[in-house]
């Protein structure tokens, strides 16, 4: 939509230039350009409104989802779980979405993973791309590391069932990892977010952690159930954080785009008026000088 407007203008310009190399043609070209920029501004403005509405909802839901993630992280911190030394395999989960036009949310997450994959030991890392955007960024260079791709994310607010599906896919895949990370955008305020990570561990790592005794009546069965549930709830939390940062970032991006379009419109109107004035003046001169020649 945005890309299509520009070639059209060029074509008009070229055709007009063939016909006559005068100011009249540029006048037409400017008015076409002006119209297209105005349309773009309308689009970005309405996109901003839509994402503002989605953002308020996402933030409300994020508040409700926060305990899920924090509870799970607390457990790992209290029990002082450490990645096992004998299992170098790692799993990274990139939390993005399918939709673009929202600033650097997706690039930020993918960049974290790309820098990790460029470091030594990368052959033991597998990545799960949640959302088409991270897949698009990572598949060219690091396609071999991708374990699976989840899409259809971002159209609707994420639900716990979504997180359950992803968690189920991780558990049923036969990839045995010792530790891992969920990379997501942590929402801080309307204008800021930060790439953060949530830890993932294998059951073996949890069982051999030094301070597991702080928790009462644990057996292997309970730990396994809890690990499964905490995986789903951490994914859910990361999805919510990601959705919220994405909407807020899209809001700012679209606000900036509308502002830029506004500036462009101002400049174009100015040149349009100037050219129009010039054309009128020239025509007047032509008429007057023609009349003067006849006398």
């Amino acid at each position: 939509m945005l890309g299509r407007a520009a070639p059209g203008v060029c074509q008009v310009l070229a055709v007009a230039n063939q016909q006559q190399n005068r100011n009249m043609a540029t006048l037409k070209a400017i008015s076409i350009r002006l119209k297209s920029v105005k349309n773009i501004q309308k689009i970005t403005q309405s996109m901003k409104m839509v994402s503002a509405a989605k953002y308020t909802r996402a933030e409300r839901e994020l508040k409700a989802a926060r305990p899920y993630g924090e509870g799970a992280v607390q457990f790992y911190e209290r029990a002082e779980v450490a990645p096992p030394a004998d299992e170098p395999k790692e799993l990274y989960i990139a939390m993005t979405s399918d939709r673009g036009l929202c600033g650097a949310v997706h690039t930020g997450v993918s960049k974290v993973i790309r820098t990790r994959l460029a470091e030594p030991g990368a052959e033991n890392i597998k990545v799960i791309c949640v959302g088409d955007k991270s897949r698009a960024i990572l598949q060219r260079l690091y396609g071999k590391h991708i374990l699976s791709v989840c899409n259809e994310i971002g159209r609707l607010p994420p639900t716990f069932n979504d997180a359950c599906k992803i968690a189920g896919a991780i558990l049923t895949s036969d990839y045995e990892f010792g530790s891992g990370k969920i990379i997501y955008n942590k929402f801080r305020s309307v204008v800021s977010y930060q790439q953060s990570d949530l830890p993932l561990f294998s059951q073996k790592a949890v069982e051999s952690s030094p301070k597991l005794a702080t928790y009462d009546s644990l057996d292997a069965d309970v730990i396994q159930s809890y690990m499964e549930f905490s995986l789903a709830s951490m994914l859910f939390y990361a999805l919510k954080e990601g959705a919220c940062s994405e909407q807020s970032s899209r809001m700012t991006a679209m606000d900036n785009a509308s502002k830029n379009a506004g500036e462009m419109i101002d400049k174009l109107t100015l040149t349009f008026n100037r050219t129009r004035q010039a054309v009128i003046t020239r025509e007047l001169i032509e008429i007057i000088s023609g009349a003067a020649a006849l006398e």
Binding site: K144, L147, I153
Partner: peptide, 17 residues
């Protein structure tokens, strides 16, 4: 309304679906 889910998961191998 909270019961549905839209995510689609594609397993990948060797850089391709």
């Amino acid at each position: 309304k909270r019961d549905d889910s839209n995510v689609r998961i594609t397993p990948w191998a060797n850089g391709r679906p």
